[in-house]
Lab assay of single mutants.
Amino acid sequence: SKDAAQYVYDEAQKGVTQVTVNGVTFKFDNWQKLLKYAQKLLN
């Protein structure tokens, strides 16, 4: 959902490398990768 994507995006902006959405945890090597993933979700 857009809300989940926005949440992931906001978390990535904080510099975190993992985020949990609806009980599913996504882990990334660095926050830039998390940010890229979030941007994909938002598009």
Rank of each mutant, 00 (worst) to 15 (best):
S1Q: 08
S1A: 09
S1W: 14
S1M: 11
K2Q: 11
K2E: 07
D3T: 03
D3F: 11
D3L: 07
D3A: 02
D3P: 08
D3E: 03
D3V: 04
D3C: 15
A4R: 04
A4K: 09
A4P: 13
A4V: 03
A4M: 04
A5L: 12
A5I: 05
A5Y: 06
A5Q: 06
Q6K: 06
Q6M: 03
Q6H: 08
Q6W: 12
Q6N: 02
Q6C: 15
Y7E: 14
Y7A: 14
Y7I: 14
Y7S: 14
Y7C: 15
V8W: 13
V8P: 14
V8S: 07
V8N: 09
V8R: 04
V8F: 09
V8D: 14
V8C: 15
V8E: 13
Y9I: 11
Y9P: 14
Y9C: 15
Y9K: 02
Y9D: 14
Y9H: 10
Y9T: 13
Y9Q: 11
Y9R: 05
Y9V: 08
D10E: 11
D10G: 10
D10W: 14
E11I: 13
E11R: 03
E11C: 15
E11N: 07
A12P: 08
A12M: 11
A12S: 06
A12Q: 05
A12I: 11
Q13P: 06
Q13E: 09
Q13V: 11
Q13G: 07
Q13D: 09
Q13C: 15
Q13N: 11
Q13Y: 08
K14T: 12
K14E: 10
K14A: 11
K14D: 12
K14M: 10
K14C: 15
G15L: 14
G15C: 15
G15A: 09
G15F: 12
G15Y: 14
G15E: 07
G15I: 14
G15S: 09
V16F: 09
V16M: 04
V16G: 05
V16R: 07
T17N: 06
T17Y: 12
T17K: 02
T17I: 12
Q18L: 13
Q18G: 07
Q18F: 13
Q18K: 08
Q18A: 07
Q18M: 07
Q18I: 11
Q18P: 05
V19N: 01
V19T: 03
V19G: 07
V19F: 06
V19M: 12
V19I: 12
V19Y: 02
V19Q: 07
V19C: 15
T20A: 08
T20V: 14
T20D: 03
T20C: 14
T20I: 06
T20E: 06
V21S: 05
V21A: 11
V21Y: 02
V21T: 11
V21E: 11
V21D: 09
V21F: 09
V21I: 12
V21W: 03
V21Q: 05
N22D: 06
N22T: 13
N22P: 11
N22E: 09
N22G: 09
N22S: 12
N22W: 15
G23F: 15
G23A: 13
G23Y: 14
G23R: 10
G23D: 06
V24Q: 07
V24C: 14
V24M: 11
V24F: 11
V24G: 01
T25Y: 08
T25G: 04
T25K: 05
T25M: 10
T25W: 10
T25I: 11
T25P: 08
T25L: 11
F26P: 02
F26Y: 07
F26G: 01
F26W: 08
F26V: 02
F26R: 05
F26H: 03
K27N: 13
K27M: 15
K27H: 10
K27D: 10
K27S: 14
K27T: 08
K27F: 15
K27I: 15
K27Y: 13
F28S: 02
F28G: 01
F28I: 10
F28A: 03
D29C: 15
D29L: 15
D29K: 10
D29F: 15
D29T: 11
D29Y: 14
D29H: 13
N30I: 15
N30K: 06
N30P: 05
N30H: 10
N30M: 10
N30T: 13
W31S: 00
W31P: 00
W31I: 07
W31H: 01
Q32Y: 11
Q32A: 08
Q32D: 03
Q32L: 12
Q32I: 09
Q32H: 11
Q32R: 07
K33L: 07
K33S: 05
K33Q: 06
K33C: 13
K33F: 09
L34R: 00
L34E: 00
L34Q: 00
L34M: 02
L34P: 00
L34T: 00
L34A: 01
L34F: 04
L35G: 00
L35K: 01
L35A: 00
L35T: 00
L35S: 00
L35I: 03
L35E: 00
L35Q: 01
L35H: 01
L35W: 05
L35V: 02
L35F: 07
L35N: 00
K36N: 05
K36H: 04
K36G: 05
K36W: 10
K36F: 06
K36R: 09
K36A: 11
Y37A: 01
Y37D: 01
Y37H: 02
Y37T: 03
Y37M: 09
Y37R: 03
Y37W: 08
Y37G: 00
A38K: 01
A38G: 01
A38I: 13
A38R: 01
A38P: 00
Q39W: 14
Q39D: 01
Q39C: 15
Q39E: 02
Q39V: 05
Q39S: 03
Q39L: 10
K40R: 06
K40F: 04
K40W: 10
K40D: 02
K40Q: 04
L41P: 00
L41V: 02
L41I: 05
L41D: 00
L41Q: 01
L42I: 03
L42N: 01
L42Y: 02
L42V: 01
L42H: 01
N43R: 12
N43Q: 08
N43D: 04
N43W: 11
